[in-house]
Nucleic acid binder design. Structure first.
Lengths: 246, 246
DNA sequence: CTCTTTATTGTGCAAGTGACAGTAACTGAA
DNA sequence: TTCAGTTACTGTCACTTGCACAATAAAGAG
């Protein structure tokens, strides 16, 4: 039904990253201060355009990640979140962003990347509550990314991505507590993570010498899907008024 | 680090649809026969380029859906699946596809759309098993979409999207059995769906006059997340040899 | 040796799950 | 009217899983 002269409208593709890590027991995400003109000076998620026509999207995400964090690129979990392509989201024109979720253990202090004058770890709750303003629709992307991570912690071994190669069960529990923002019962947590076969496997004892009994060390197992899952406890019933009908 | 002359490489954006429905108690997906040149004559998922620079991605998906199915666009569940943008996936150049999952009740026979010479419902197992060849990476997209739907049936009220506005529990059970490809115990199914508050709510009796007792009619409730979830039974232990360590 | 700290293992009860059978409400034919 | 046929729904019981809660084990410090 189109004329022969019609050709599809080209769009520009960006890659944006929600990079999560744990710092001082709390969930943080990496934000940069924009040095280029749209929203210059405002906070934003790390990201950028494809470098050239043949660059793979996942490769671009890895590139942006190492530009911002100077990371070895191993030991990071990187995964696609979704597409954000609303027509008005970028004043430069039709820019479609492929959002990614990155998770890594105790990341070093960030370095300023190409398009960013500064980069810093910001507590997740500051983003969720709207305390910090983000450029474009990055607030939405970050919120979606954090919620996605929270859900995925229940059914996958994603939590081990927050830890180093070897970790204790107590450390793993701190990951869950930090990401979910809730306290967990230590005894039940031990039983659950060990019941999920292939989740974590023991290696050798350690003496973290925090003053107590040394903890058994574990490393991530082969299984990526958790069964049984670790169901996140429901938040303290807010307006849980379920109306009885008629 | 780039010169001022550098500009981001433009890409072409397509929208592809995995449209699922139930026909004769089995899961079907809609495939079209391509009438245009890349992969002309081969089966493919319905989809196409953005119409113009300002068209929203979700709107484009709705447009392609109605072009192919002549659907009222209400009563359809439409949701983004993910991005498929490998550089070699389309011989025409850098074409990035935003895959969508569409689910609708008992759809009418399809009509040939713009770029398709023919459209037909194909059993899902024919796609999964590779019995039908698909253009581009559409086999992968369709597989991901079906698996996504199967998983989401467990934790969300997605199954009601396969039914009409009003449905019986037996019909809902047929949805689960068709999508999962397994038989379910009717008594336990009744208990579970009614235990998940807000999943389905009763309206008034009906006489489906299939010869038996009339079935209570229900409509989809407000809750989209199912709790407790309806866990999909594990397939008959194939090579479930869990090795006991040391 | 005792106290403190952290790690790890048990125990009981309530709720959920799965396997299984019986009852209820209609239609249609004898 | 009765009875067979068909479909919709409800009930039970053994078993597993879930969560709340407490006790024990293994270090270091004095």
């Amino acid at each position: 039904m189109q004329h022969d002269a019609w050709s599809p409208p080209p769009v520009l593709l960006t890659v944006d990253l929600v990079i999560l890590t744990l710092r001082e027991g709390h969930l943080h995400t990496l934000l940069v201060e924009r040095g280029e003109d749209p929203f210059r000076g405002m906070s934003a998620l790390p990201g950028g355009f494809l470098n050239h026509d043949g660059e793979e999207i996942l490769d671009a995400a890895h590139r942006e990640l190492s530009e911002e964090t100077a990371l070895t690129s191993s030991w990071v979990h990187l995964e696609q979140l979704g597409v954000y392509g609303e027509s008005g989201r970028d004043p430069r024109g039709r820019v479609v962003s492929v959002a990614h979720l990155a998770i890594a253990p105790g990341l070093p202090n960030p370095v300023a990347g190409t398009d960013a004058t500064d980069a810093a770890w910001v507590p997740a709750h500051a983003v969720l509550s709207g305390k910090v303003e983000l450029a474009f629709d990055h607030r939405r992307i970050a919120t979606d990314g954090i919620e996605y991570a929270r859900t995925k912690l229940e059914f996958s071994s994603l939590a081990t991505a927050f830890c180093g190669a070897e970790f204790t069960i107590a450390e793993l529990q701190q990951v869950y507590e930090a990401v979910w923002g809730t306290a967990l019962d230590t005894r039940n947590f031990y039983r659950k993570v060990q019941a999920a076969k292939g989740f974590i496997i023991p290696v050798g004892a350690d003496r973290r010498s925090t003053g107590g009994r040394p903890a058994q060390l574990y490393r991530a197992g082969p299984k990526t899907v958790l069964f049984p899952p670790l169901i996140r406890p429901a938040p303290p019933a807010t307006e849980e008024k379920t109306r009885e009908e008629e």
